[in-house]
Protein backbone atom coordinates (compact mmCIF):
# COMPACT_ATOMS: atom_id res chain seq x y z
CA UNK A 1 0.00 0.00 0.00
CA UNK A 2 1.19 3.49 -0.86
CA UNK A 3 0.57 5.93 1.95
CA UNK A 4 -1.30 9.10 1.23
CA UNK A 5 0.97 12.15 1.28
CA UNK A 6 -0.07 15.77 1.06
CA UNK A 7 2.20 16.66 -1.86
CA UNK A 8 2.06 13.26 -3.49
CA UNK A 9 4.63 10.49 -3.56
CA UNK A 10 7.89 10.03 -5.41
CA UNK A 11 8.57 6.81 -7.26
CA UNK A 12 12.04 6.17 -8.56
CA UNK A 13 12.01 5.36 -12.28
CA UNK A 14 13.94 2.18 -11.50
CA UNK A 15 10.93 0.98 -9.56
CA UNK A 16 8.54 1.29 -12.49
CA UNK A 17 8.74 -2.48 -13.21
CA UNK A 18 7.69 -3.14 -9.62
CA UNK A 19 4.84 -0.68 -9.90
CA UNK A 20 3.51 -2.29 -13.07
CA UNK A 21 3.95 -5.78 -11.65
CA UNK A 22 2.04 -4.78 -8.57
CA UNK A 23 -0.74 -3.13 -10.57
CA UNK A 24 -1.19 -6.15 -12.83
CA UNK A 25 -2.27 -8.15 -9.78
CA UNK A 26 -5.45 -6.08 -9.55
CA UNK A 27 -5.92 -4.51 -12.96
CA UNK A 28 -5.77 -5.17 -16.64
CA UNK A 29 -3.37 -2.48 -17.82
CA UNK A 30 -3.40 -0.66 -21.11
CA UNK A 31 -0.71 1.84 -21.92
CA UNK A 32 1.18 3.46 -24.78
CA UNK A 33 3.28 0.93 -26.63
CA UNK A 34 5.57 1.39 -29.58
CA UNK A 35 4.26 0.21 -32.94
CA UNK A 36 5.52 0.58 -36.52
CA UNK A 37 3.62 3.79 -37.08
CA UNK A 38 3.79 5.51 -33.71
CA UNK A 39 2.42 4.61 -30.30
CA UNK A 40 -0.88 3.00 -29.60
CA UNK A 41 -2.59 1.64 -26.52
CA UNK A 42 -1.85 -1.99 -25.94
CA UNK A 43 -2.21 -4.49 -23.12
CA UNK A 44 0.75 -4.09 -20.80
CA UNK A 45 2.09 -7.02 -18.81
CA UNK A 46 5.47 -5.65 -17.85
CA UNK A 47 6.97 -2.18 -17.83
CA UNK A 48 9.29 -2.82 -20.81
CA UNK A 49 6.24 -2.90 -23.04
CA UNK A 50 5.42 0.66 -22.09
CA UNK A 51 6.65 3.60 -24.16
CA UNK A 52 6.11 6.45 -21.72
CA UNK A 53 8.48 8.75 -23.54
CA UNK A 54 5.93 9.51 -26.24
CA UNK A 55 4.03 12.41 -27.77
CA UNK A 56 0.60 10.92 -27.93
CA UNK A 57 -0.96 7.73 -29.23
CA UNK A 58 -2.14 7.57 -32.82
CA UNK A 59 -5.77 6.78 -32.01
CA UNK A 60 -7.44 8.32 -28.97
CA UNK A 61 -8.43 6.05 -26.09
CA UNK A 62 -12.16 6.69 -26.53
CA UNK A 63 -12.59 3.22 -28.02
CA UNK A 64 -12.01 1.68 -24.59
CA UNK A 65 -15.38 2.96 -23.46
CA UNK A 66 -17.07 3.52 -26.78
CA UNK A 67 -15.73 0.87 -29.18
CA UNK A 68 -16.04 1.49 -32.91
CA UNK A 69 -18.17 -1.64 -33.25
CA UNK A 70 -20.29 -2.86 -30.36
CA UNK A 71 -23.19 -5.29 -30.12
CA UNK A 72 -26.10 -3.81 -28.20
CA UNK A 73 -28.39 -6.81 -28.32
CA UNK A 74 -28.92 -10.06 -30.11
CA UNK A 75 -31.93 -12.14 -30.91
CA UNK A 76 -33.10 -15.11 -32.84
CA UNK A 77 -36.31 -15.07 -34.73
CA UNK A 78 -37.67 -18.12 -32.90
CA UNK A 79 -38.72 -16.17 -29.84
CA UNK A 80 -38.48 -12.67 -31.36
CA UNK A 81 -37.10 -11.33 -28.12
CA UNK A 82 -34.06 -9.14 -27.91
CA UNK A 83 -31.44 -10.09 -25.38
CA UNK A 84 -29.05 -7.51 -24.07
CA UNK A 85 -25.39 -7.83 -24.86
CA UNK A 86 -23.25 -7.10 -21.85
CA UNK A 87 -19.71 -5.91 -22.37
CA UNK A 88 -17.18 -8.03 -20.59
CA UNK A 89 -15.64 -5.85 -17.98
CA UNK A 90 -12.86 -6.33 -15.51
CA UNK A 91 -10.95 -3.80 -13.43
CA UNK A 92 -8.89 -1.88 -15.96
CA UNK A 93 -6.26 0.78 -15.76
CA UNK A 94 -5.36 3.17 -18.53
CA UNK A 95 -1.77 3.92 -17.63
CA UNK A 96 0.20 6.88 -18.94
CA UNK A 97 -2.71 8.55 -20.68
CA UNK A 98 -2.12 12.14 -21.79
CA UNK A 99 -4.04 14.88 -19.92
CA UNK A 100 -5.90 15.95 -23.08
CA UNK A 101 -7.27 12.46 -23.56
CA UNK A 102 -8.32 12.23 -19.92
CA UNK A 103 -10.13 15.53 -20.27
CA UNK A 104 -11.84 14.23 -23.40
CA UNK A 105 -13.04 11.20 -21.46
CA UNK A 106 -14.57 13.53 -18.88
CA UNK A 107 -16.52 15.11 -21.75
CA UNK A 108 -17.67 11.71 -23.02
CA UNK A 109 -18.85 11.06 -19.45
CA UNK A 110 -21.11 14.06 -19.81
CA UNK A 111 -22.61 12.73 -23.02
CA UNK A 112 -23.10 9.14 -21.95
CA UNK A 113 -23.58 9.44 -18.18
CA UNK A 114 -24.65 12.93 -17.04
CA UNK A 115 -27.05 13.40 -19.91
CA UNK A 116 -30.01 11.22 -18.83
CA UNK A 117 -30.80 8.47 -19.60
CA UNK A 118 -27.40 6.93 -19.00
CA UNK A 119 -25.81 4.68 -21.57
CA UNK A 120 -25.45 1.30 -19.84
CA UNK A 121 -22.74 -0.02 -22.17
CA UNK A 122 -20.50 2.98 -21.73
CA UNK A 123 -21.18 3.04 -18.02
CA UNK A 124 -20.15 -0.56 -17.43
CA UNK A 125 -16.79 -0.06 -19.09
CA UNK A 126 -16.22 3.35 -17.60
CA UNK A 127 -16.98 2.28 -14.04
CA UNK A 128 -14.49 -0.56 -14.28
CA UNK A 129 -11.71 1.71 -15.53
CA UNK A 130 -9.36 4.05 -13.74
CA UNK A 131 -7.06 6.53 -15.35
CA UNK A 132 -3.44 7.23 -14.55
CA UNK A 133 -2.41 10.35 -16.38
CA UNK A 134 1.10 11.33 -17.38
CA UNK A 135 1.72 15.07 -17.68
CA UNK A 136 3.47 16.24 -20.86
CA UNK A 137 7.01 17.51 -20.58
CA UNK A 138 7.52 17.97 -24.29
CA UNK A 139 4.30 18.63 -26.19
CA UNK A 140 4.21 18.07 -29.96
CA UNK A 141 4.14 20.88 -32.53
CA UNK A 142 0.51 20.01 -33.30
CA UNK A 143 -0.58 20.37 -29.66
CA UNK A 144 -2.75 23.37 -28.84
CA UNK A 145 -4.27 22.28 -25.55
CA UNK A 146 -3.65 25.57 -23.76
CA UNK A 147 -5.77 27.43 -26.31
CA UNK A 148 -8.85 25.32 -25.60
CA UNK A 149 -8.80 25.20 -21.82
CA UNK A 150 -6.64 22.12 -21.40
CA UNK A 151 -2.95 21.97 -20.60
CA UNK A 152 0.11 19.71 -20.21
CA UNK A 153 -0.83 19.11 -16.57
CA UNK A 154 -4.64 19.21 -16.83
CA UNK A 155 -6.04 16.96 -14.10
CA UNK A 156 -9.67 16.59 -15.07
CA UNK A 157 -10.63 13.02 -15.84
CA UNK A 158 -7.56 11.55 -14.17
CA UNK A 159 -7.63 9.40 -11.02
CA UNK A 160 -3.89 9.64 -10.56
CA UNK A 161 -1.62 12.29 -12.01
CA UNK A 162 1.99 11.44 -12.78
CA UNK A 163 4.82 13.84 -13.56
CA UNK A 164 8.15 12.73 -14.89
CA UNK A 165 10.91 14.53 -12.97
CA UNK A 166 14.25 13.52 -14.40
CA UNK A 167 14.62 9.96 -13.08
CA UNK A 168 11.64 9.99 -10.75
CA UNK A 169 7.87 10.07 -11.02
CA UNK A 170 5.80 12.36 -8.86
CA UNK A 171 2.41 10.72 -8.35
CA UNK A 172 -0.71 12.17 -6.85
CA UNK A 173 -4.10 10.59 -6.25
CA UNK A 174 -6.84 12.96 -7.28
CA UNK A 175 -9.98 10.92 -6.72
CA UNK A 176 -11.21 8.16 -4.40
CA UNK A 177 -10.52 5.87 -7.36
CA UNK A 178 -6.93 7.06 -7.35
CA UNK A 179 -6.65 6.43 -3.61
CA UNK A 180 -7.98 2.94 -4.24
CA UNK A 181 -5.20 2.27 -6.73
CA UNK A 182 -2.65 3.38 -4.15
CA UNK A 183 -4.09 1.01 -1.56
CA UNK A 184 -3.84 -1.84 -4.07
CA UNK A 185 -0.16 -1.50 -4.87
CA UNK A 186 2.90 -2.51 -3.04
CA UNK A 187 5.93 -0.52 -4.09
CA UNK A 188 8.40 1.66 -2.24
CA UNK A 189 7.80 5.39 -2.50
CA UNK A 190 8.87 8.49 -0.64
CA UNK A 191 6.78 11.50 0.29
CA UNK A 192 7.25 14.32 -2.23
CA UNK A 193 9.01 17.40 -0.92
CA UNK A 194 8.30 21.01 -1.71
CA UNK A 195 11.51 20.92 -3.78
CA UNK A 196 9.91 18.23 -5.98
CA UNK A 197 6.87 20.44 -6.45
CA UNK A 198 9.08 23.35 -7.54
CA UNK A 199 10.76 21.04 -10.05
CA UNK A 200 7.39 19.86 -11.32
CA UNK A 201 6.03 23.41 -11.66
CA UNK A 202 9.13 24.35 -13.58
CA UNK A 203 8.62 21.50 -16.04
CA UNK A 204 4.95 22.31 -16.47
CA UNK A 205 5.77 25.95 -17.14
CA UNK A 206 8.32 24.95 -19.76
CA UNK A 207 5.80 22.64 -21.41
CA UNK A 208 3.16 25.37 -21.40
CA UNK A 209 5.56 27.68 -23.18
CA UNK A 210 6.18 25.06 -25.85
CA UNK A 211 2.49 24.90 -26.70
CA UNK A 212 1.82 27.89 -28.85
CA UNK A 213 -1.21 29.95 -27.94
CA UNK A 214 -2.01 31.27 -31.31
CA UNK A 215 -5.36 32.94 -30.98
CA UNK A 216 -7.89 34.43 -28.63
CA UNK A 217 -10.38 31.56 -28.47
CA UNK A 218 -13.14 33.76 -27.07
CA UNK A 219 -13.03 35.97 -30.10
CA UNK A 220 -13.41 32.88 -32.26
CA UNK A 221 -16.33 31.57 -30.23
CA UNK A 222 -18.01 34.94 -30.38
CA UNK A 223 -17.82 34.84 -34.18
CA UNK A 224 -19.46 31.41 -34.23
CA UNK A 225 -22.68 32.92 -32.94
CA UNK A 226 -23.10 33.99 -36.53
CA UNK A 227 -24.28 30.69 -38.01
CA UNK A 228 -24.42 32.18 -41.51
CA UNK A 229 -20.83 33.43 -41.28
CA UNK A 230 -19.30 33.98 -44.72
CA UNK A 231 -16.20 31.91 -43.95
CA UNK A 232 -17.62 28.39 -44.17
CA UNK A 233 -17.73 28.20 -47.94
CA UNK A 234 -14.04 28.94 -48.29
CA UNK A 235 -12.94 26.81 -45.35
CA UNK A 236 -14.82 23.78 -46.64
CA UNK A 237 -13.52 24.09 -50.20
CA UNK A 238 -10.60 21.71 -49.85
CA UNK A 239 -12.27 19.26 -47.46
CA UNK A 240 -12.66 15.80 -48.99
CA UNK A 241 -15.47 14.86 -46.64
CA UNK A 242 -13.85 11.76 -45.14
CA UNK A 243 -14.25 10.80 -41.52
CA UNK A 244 -10.63 10.96 -40.35
CA UNK A 245 -10.98 14.08 -38.18
CA UNK A 246 -14.02 12.70 -36.38
CA UNK A 247 -12.71 9.17 -35.92
CA UNK A 248 -9.37 10.36 -34.57
CA UNK A 249 -10.99 12.99 -32.34
CA UNK A 250 -11.07 11.97 -28.68
CA UNK A 251 -14.37 13.78 -28.05
CA UNK A 252 -16.37 12.94 -31.19
CA UNK A 253 -19.01 10.45 -30.17
CA UNK A 254 -21.64 10.27 -32.91
CA UNK A 255 -22.83 6.78 -33.65
CA UNK A 256 -25.05 4.72 -35.87
CA UNK A 257 -27.27 1.81 -34.86
CA UNK A 258 -27.90 -0.88 -37.44
CA UNK A 259 -29.31 -4.39 -37.53
CA UNK A 260 -27.50 -7.40 -38.90
CA UNK A 261 -29.10 -10.69 -39.74
CA UNK A 262 -27.56 -14.05 -40.41
CA UNK A 263 -30.23 -16.56 -41.31
CA UNK A 264 -32.59 -16.68 -38.34
CA UNK A 265 -30.65 -14.67 -35.83
CA UNK A 266 -29.01 -11.32 -35.69
CA UNK A 267 -27.80 -8.45 -33.65
CA UNK A 268 -28.30 -4.75 -33.23
CA UNK A 269 -24.93 -3.11 -33.40
CA UNK A 270 -23.61 0.32 -32.62
CA UNK A 271 -20.81 1.74 -34.76
CA UNK A 272 -19.00 5.07 -34.91
CA UNK A 273 -20.54 7.47 -37.36
CA UNK A 274 -19.40 10.84 -38.60
CA UNK A 275 -21.19 14.14 -39.18
CA UNK A 276 -18.90 14.49 -42.21
CA UNK A 277 -20.75 11.72 -44.05
CA UNK A 278 -23.56 12.75 -46.40
CA UNK A 279 -26.00 10.07 -45.23
CA UNK A 280 -25.63 11.02 -41.58
CA UNK A 281 -28.64 13.34 -41.66
CA UNK A 282 -30.42 12.12 -44.79
CA UNK A 283 -34.16 11.73 -44.13
CA UNK A 284 -36.04 8.75 -45.53
CA UNK A 285 -37.97 11.30 -47.62
CA UNK A 286 -34.77 12.31 -49.42
CA UNK A 287 -34.51 15.68 -47.68
CA UNK A 288 -31.10 16.42 -46.17
CA UNK A 289 -30.75 19.34 -43.75
CA UNK A 290 -26.96 19.26 -44.20
CA UNK A 291 -26.59 18.56 -47.92
CA UNK A 292 -23.03 19.71 -48.60
CA UNK A 293 -19.51 19.60 -47.21
CA UNK A 294 -19.89 23.22 -46.14
CA UNK A 295 -22.87 22.44 -43.91
CA UNK A 296 -21.23 19.32 -42.55
CA UNK A 297 -17.94 21.02 -41.73
CA UNK A 298 -19.85 23.83 -40.05
CA UNK A 299 -21.67 21.23 -37.96
CA UNK A 300 -18.39 19.68 -36.84
CA UNK A 301 -16.80 22.95 -35.81
CA UNK A 302 -19.99 24.38 -34.32
CA UNK A 303 -20.67 21.22 -32.35
CA UNK A 304 -17.28 21.42 -30.69
CA UNK A 305 -17.00 25.13 -30.07
CA UNK A 306 -20.57 26.35 -29.84
CA UNK A 307 -23.28 23.72 -29.38
CA UNK A 308 -21.37 21.67 -26.78
CA UNK A 309 -20.62 24.84 -24.85
CA UNK A 310 -24.36 25.55 -24.70
CA UNK A 311 -25.36 21.96 -24.02
CA UNK A 312 -22.64 20.64 -21.75
CA UNK A 313 -20.86 23.80 -20.68
CA UNK A 314 -17.63 22.55 -22.27
CA UNK A 315 -15.67 23.10 -25.45
CA UNK A 316 -15.49 19.67 -27.06
CA UNK A 317 -11.93 20.09 -28.31
CA UNK A 318 -8.95 19.30 -26.12
CA UNK A 319 -6.22 20.41 -28.53
CA UNK A 320 -4.65 16.97 -29.06
CA UNK A 321 -3.92 17.76 -32.72
CA UNK A 322 -4.83 14.33 -34.11
CA UNK A 323 -7.15 15.79 -36.74
CA UNK A 324 -4.31 18.04 -37.92
CA UNK A 325 -1.78 15.21 -38.22
CA UNK A 326 -4.02 12.86 -40.15
CA UNK A 327 -6.02 15.11 -42.46
CA UNK A 328 -5.15 14.02 -46.03
CA UNK A 329 -5.36 17.59 -47.32
CA UNK A 330 -3.71 19.21 -44.29
CA UNK A 331 -6.78 21.07 -43.03
CA UNK A 332 -5.58 22.51 -39.75
CA UNK A 333 -8.21 23.27 -37.14
CA UNK A 334 -5.91 25.93 -35.69
CA UNK A 335 -5.97 27.67 -39.04
CA UNK A 336 -9.76 27.45 -39.13
CA UNK A 337 -9.96 28.98 -35.66
CA UNK A 338 -7.56 31.75 -36.66
CA UNK A 339 -9.26 32.46 -39.98
CA UNK A 340 -12.65 32.80 -38.36
CA UNK A 341 -11.36 34.78 -35.38
CA UNK A 342 -9.60 37.22 -37.65
CA UNK A 343 -12.44 37.60 -40.13
CA UNK A 344 -13.60 41.20 -40.12
Amino acid sequence: MVKRERLGVILSESRLPELIASLTETYRIFGPSKKDDGESFAAIHKSEELALDYGNTKMSPKGFFFPQTESLMWYDSADKKAKQDKPEVQPTLLFGLRPCDALAISYLDKVFLSNEPQDPYYRQRREATKIVCLACNSPSPTCFCTTVGCGPDSEKGADIMMYKLNDRYLMKALTPGGEEIFTNIDVETEPATSQDIVEKDDLVNKACQMVKRFVDIDEFKEKLNNFQGPWWEKLAQKCLGCGICTYFCPTCHCFDVTDEVVKQSGRRVRTWDSCMYPLFTLHASGHNPRPGIKERMRQRIMHKFNYAVEYYGETFCVGCGRCIIHCPVNIDIRQIIMDIAEER
Partner: peptide, 15 residues
Amino acid sequence: RMKCGIGKCGRCNIG
Protein backbone atom coordinates in the same frame (compact mmCIF):
# COMPACT_ATOMS: atom_id res chain seq x y z
CA ARG B 1 -33.25 11.58 -38.98
CA MET B 2 -32.72 9.87 -35.63
CA LYS B 3 -31.06 6.81 -34.25
CA CYS B 4 -30.78 6.70 -30.46
CA GLY B 5 -33.70 8.97 -29.55
CA ILE B 6 -31.99 9.95 -26.28
CA GLY B 7 -29.66 12.78 -27.28
CA LYS B 8 -26.44 10.84 -27.74
CA CYS B 9 -25.92 9.66 -31.30
CA GLY B 10 -25.54 13.24 -32.49
CA ARG B 11 -27.42 13.48 -35.78
CA CYS B 12 -30.74 15.20 -35.05
CA ASN B 13 -29.46 18.45 -33.63
CA ILE B 14 -30.53 21.87 -34.78
CA GLY B 15 -27.91 24.11 -33.28
